[in-house]
Amino acid sequence: MFLKNAWYVAAMPEEVGKAPLARTVCGEKLVFYRGPDGKAVAVEDFCPHRGAPLSLGYVENGRLVCGYHGLAMGCDGKALDMPGQRVRGFPAIKSYAVEERYGFIWVWPGEPEKADPAMIHHLDWAEKAEWAYGGGLYHIKCDYRLMIDNLMDLTHETYVHTGSIGQKEIDEALVSTKTEGEHVMTSRFMDGVQPPPFWRMALRMNDLADDVKVDRWQICHFHPPSHVLIEVGVAHAGQGGYHAPDAVKASSIVVDFITPETETSHWYFWGMARRFKPGDAALTTQIREGQGKIFNEDREMLEQQQQNLLRWPERHLLKLNIDAGGVQSRRIIERKLMEEVAA
């Protein structure tokens, strides 16, 4: 089961252009395209004539045309016309609430009348010129909740990401987890450590010395239905750590929008928002490529984990103090699911 009365990132704006885009979100088979006004829309990927996928068709003057027999569909899911046929009486297919905001296309896979754009998670950095963002998209073959577990417990960095962001001090630092309403926050602070390779690069790119000890932080924020935003950074040791002035630190927000596809697969929209050298496009590309390699290491581990869980479904997973962030996040998802079913 998925929480459907919620906003999920469904696509990047550049994915929805001249051709229709097929994408399954929370078990709903959707097709995205741009209507007559250029706005992104989504309807059920099902032609009411013979059941063909509308995503195999084309877009003409803002109308979605089925590639099987030429039935043209409107943005509201109603049939418009078809060569030589009368189709106005065809049953409408589902249409979905869609919003384009913060550089993403969001969809509400549940009841359209409950879709309030004000409920889209606010991204303050996306509205400010002093921030830059670069990211990508992975299709990952595992339960979306495994990715939430992964991101709310960064202990794995020591072992999965040894050549980029991992270091033994992550294991040694105390983890603090707290829940405020529907917000789960897991924090870890490491003072007086050597910066790992990725953060040495970030310091150099920020015109800072990379051969000195730093104070490092990781603050993971979960918000339903499945968003994880992580404040990360390093500052020259003794300068205030997380609260150090910008002149002595390199920091950013790791952006993770995790959109369920099926029970064992999801769409992972990842990226990094940074507040240094926002106009440096080459730096954005360099960071995106480095981050993409890091997240690809997660993908291999998570997909193999999913296969193990499918192979031995009767085995119970152990829970340690480092798992608290993921456990609390899952509890919020489960509670909201129960509320949605009851409603």
Rank of each mutant, 00 (worst) to 15 (best):
L56W: 10
P20G: 04
R63K: 15
A92R: 05
H227I: 13
G35I: 00
T262Q: 08
P109E: 00
D211L: 03
R200Y: 05
Y58A: 03
L229D: 14
P91S: 03
E261Y: 02
E157A: 15
Y8H: 01
G77S: 02
A19Y: 07
I258R: 02
M185L: 10
W106K: 01
W199S: 04
R50D: 08
S251G: 13
N61F: 06
Q304H: 01
Y102L: 06
V41E: 07
K4N: 06
E130W: 11
A342Y: 10
I294S: 10
A273G: 14
E169I: 00
R311G: 04
E100D: 05
S55W: 12
G166I: 12
D81M: 01
I253Y: 14
V248W: 11
K249V: 09
V43W: 10
F189M: 11
D116W: 04
F2L: 10
V255T: 14
S187T: 15
H243V: 01
G166A: 13
M272I: 14
T155G: 12
W7P: 03
V234R: 12
G233E: 12
R330F: 00
K4S: 02
L151H: 10
H122V: 12
A132I: 03
G325W: 01
G238L: 03
V248R: 09
M205K: 15
D124E: 14
F104V: 04
E157I: 07
K94P: 05
V248L: 11
A235Y: 10
P20V: 07
Y133W: 14
G89H: 04
T24G: 03
G62H: 02
D124F: 11
L146G: 03
D149V: 07
M205N: 13
Q167A: 14
I140M: 12
V9A: 04
P91I: 07
M205I: 00
C26N: 05
L309E: 08
H69Q: 02
E261W: 04
A209S: 11
F104N: 04
E169F: 05
A129K: 15
T264N: 11
A97S: 15
P225F: 02
G74L: 02
F189I: 15
F90K: 11
W270Q: 04
H316L: 09
A19L: 05
G136V: 02
Y33Q: 02
I219V: 13
P112C: 00
A282P: 00
V87N: 06
Q85W: 09
K168Y: 14
R274T: 08
L30E: 06
E15F: 08
F2Y: 13
D256E: 15
A342E: 14
E231A: 14
V254E: 14
L56T: 13
E130L: 09
W125E: 13
L56F: 06
G192Q: 10
D45L: 08
G84I: 00
L154G: 09
H121Y: 08
E44N: 09
W131T: 09
G279M: 07
L123Q: 15
A273C: 10
T162W: 08
V184I: 05
V184M: 01
Y138S: 00
V107W: 01
I294R: 08
Y133N: 06
V25F: 04
R101H: 05
D256N: 15
K39T: 12
G135I: 04
Y8D: 01
V193E: 11
P36N: 03
G110D: 00
K4A: 02
L203W: 04
E261G: 13
L151M: 13
H243L: 11
V65P: 06
